Amino acid sequence: MGETTQAQHDLARRFAALHHGARPLLLPNAWDAGSAAIFAALGYPAIATTSGGVAWSLGHADGEVLALAELLAAVRRMVRVVNVPVTVDFEAGFGATPQQVGESVRALLDTGAVGLNLEDGVEHAWLRPVGDAAARIAAARAAAASAGVDVFINARVDNWIVGRMDAAALFEEAVQRARAYIDAGADGIYPIALSDPELIERFCRAVPAPINVGARAGSSSLEALKQLGVARVSTATRLAMVAYSAARETAQALRATGEFAGLDASFGYDALQRLFPKH
């Protein structure tokens, strides 16, 4: 295992503080070093990864298919090209047991990352027992403590993806899960797929930690989410999907017409070259 550095400690503290600013922390989700460099150059104060985008860029489906070693290599490249905090969508923790999750988190911290998401859903199909999910968060926290990095653990609550209960019971269980995860060492809570403004506000009031919501076309504005109590907003797979969609549509038009006008890029070769070191 590598040694953590003062720079990583400083990035971790900076990242945690961003969850308590005057505005919600807006995170673009990168899928490779190029996208991370672009987002950092635009002035975003931190970068998140997208499990789906990273998996697709490496030739895998999303959903706990990507090998840990491949993810770590991708994260290491992102960290190398940016000077802002990087937080990683760590899916279910890359381990069958809490101990294995802790070992995987320790390996993740060796990349220079300072935050991670851990989800309590399994293959987008069912929820882990809350005790098991909490134990995995506790193991991640212990691993971070042993590494000397105050990593920001964002615990994902998957009730709105895979919950099999009526709306009232779903909400109450999500709150109970969130509180259990905070007790286990989580710093923030991500109720993924929760989009109803009234429920977001209720959830923010019920859970004593920074709340992360996902953004999509049609979502409430950043200012509106701030008024609801949201501390963090991420784009998940959507920027990757926008990029892949643009490439697909351009290639489709090229093949259909034989015309090359669509190959004109507003962000060209020289601009991209300036984002990266030449060594």
Rank of each mutant, 00 (worst) to 15 (best):
T4D: 07
Q8M: 10
A12N: 11
R13D: 13
A22S: 12
A22I: 08
R23S: 13
L27I: 12
W31Y: 12
D32Q: 03
A33P: 04
G34T: 08
P45D: 04
G52L: 07
G52H: 09
W56T: 08
G59D: 03
G63F: 00
V65C: 04
A69M: 02
A73T: 04
R77T: 00
T87G: 07
V88G: 08
D89E: 08
T97K: 04
T97C: 06
P98N: 06
S104A: 14
L109K: 08
L118M: 01
E119L: 06
G121T: 06
H124K: 09
G131Q: 08
A133Q: 08
A138F: 02
R141V: 03
A142P: 01
A143Q: 00
A144T: 04
V149G: 05
I161G: 00
I161E: 06
R164Q: 10
M165R: 07
A167R: 13
E172R: 10
E173Y: 06
A174K: 02
I182H: 06
I182Q: 05
D187N: 14
Y190S: 00
F203L: 03
P208W: 04
I211L: 11
A217M: 09
S221C: 11
L222S: 12
L222D: 09
A224V: 12
A224I: 07
G229F: 12
S234A: 11
T237I: 07
T237M: 14
A243L: 14
T250N: 12
T250Y: 10
R255H: 15
A256S: 14
T257M: 13
G258S: 13
F260S: 13
G262F: 15
F267P: 12
L275A: 12
K278E: 15
